[in-house]
């Protein structure tokens, strides 16, 4: 009896979580063996190191949460990098107590534009958000070209990204709150159900009497607002809002979402997977740099890991008619 219940437990944990979790442990073991051999310490297992990694991961994690909402719909948001940069730069330029609300408002606006293009004009999201990204970059160049606005983050942004509560860094707390909110939204609210349903078949949801266009706009708006939040936190963390600050976050965010088991065509995936995927990617990059792997090797390993993880559990069905 005990045997069957154990296998039932194992089966109830979904494959992405299992594989990604195992891989995270494998990364830590390999890294620890390396530090043990070279320096005789177990730096990688110290709470300071792990908390620092979580802190670094929280920016990517928040972006990935938003990206996941859009991917669940079967779409993608390539405008994330400059949404991050634009909201952070505008927030820093505005300054004062209104900086963060205005930054989030910038994100909301970008998300609504994306949503209108995808939901109402029916332009493929990949190309529309790509265009929006380029336009945002141009707008930011225009903003900073003529005169140079302040790029200093406000006190609130600094507090939220640099301080900690009872030893837990603030960004990690924010990431956790975002995760809870998004998980609640996906599991317990109609909007969440619509998102999964639209990812499976939009026409069926439309025929069920649901305004699918509004759901698309709402999801794109949420995605962009989360990217804006991450951008402002990142500006606080690096003490400066700068151009191209979001560029290194686009592809890892997509990778985190798909490594976490979310179907890139939409319709299925769990938030817990995205969180684990984020941690995997951040830890992989960090441990490889601890092991003094050159950039070339890191890129290769990064790519191979994504393919290997997906081959292990992300394969599509055979075409059967």
């Amino acid at each position: 009896m005990a045997n069957t219940s154990l296998s039932a437990v194992v089966r109830s944990i979904d494959k992405p979580l299992l594989f990604a979790g195992a891989f995270i442990i494998a990364i830590l073991v390999v890294g620890s063996v390396y530090t043990m051999v070279t320096a005789g310490t177990l730096t990688l297992l110290s709470p300071t190191y792990l908390l620092l990694q979580l802190k670094v991961a929280s920016f990517l994690g928040i972006v990935a949460c938003g990206m996941m909402l859009v991917v669940l719909l079967g779409h993608i948001d390539l405008s994330v990098p400059w949404t991050m940069a634009a909201s952070a730069m505008i927030a820093a330029a505005v300054g004062g107590p209104w900086a963060m609300p205005i930054g989030l408002g910038v994100g909301l606006l970008i998300g609504i534009v994306n949503g209108i293009g995808v939901a109402y004009l029916r332009v493929p999201s990949m190309i529309f958000t790509l265009g929006v990204n380029v336009v945002l970059r141009g707008l930011m160049v225009m903003l900073t070209g003529g005169f140079s606005p302040s790029s200093q983050p406000t006190d609130l942004m600094l507090f939220l990204s640099k301080n900690d509560v009872l030893g837990v860094p603030n960004p990690v707390i924010i990431w956790a709150l975002v995760c809870f909110a998004v998980a609640f939204m996906l599991k317990r609210t109609p909007l969440g159900r619509y998102i999964y349903a639209i990812g499976n078949r939009e026409s069926a949801v439309y025929l069920s009497g649901i305004n699918t266009r509004l759901v698309l706009v709402a999801s794109f708006a949420l995605c962009s607002m989360l990217a804006a939040l991450a951008g402002m936190l990142l500006a606080g963390y690096s003490s400066k809002a700068f151009q191209a600050m979001g560029d290194p976050y686009l592809l890892p965010a997509i990778a985190a979402v798909v490594i976490g088991g979310t179907n890139i065509l939409g319709g299925s995936g769990k938030l817990s997977g995205t969180v684990v995927g984020t941690i995997l990617i951040v830890l992989l990059q960090s441990v490889l740099s601890v092991m003094q792997m050159p950039e070339a090797g890191r890129q290769i390993i990064y790519g191979v890991v994504i393919i290997a993880m997906l081959l292990a559990y992300g394969r599509g069905g055979r075409l059967r008619l």
């Binding site: 993608i76 592809l251 997509i254 990778a255 798909v258 890139i264 065509l265 990064y302 790519g303 191979v304 994504i306 393919i307 997906l310 081959l311 992300g314 394969r315 599509g316 069905g317 055979r318």
Partner: peptide, 12 residues
Amino acid sequence: GRLQPIVVTLAT
């Protein structure tokens, strides 16, 4: 591998 081209080419 029956994976989606967008993620495959992202990785490759």
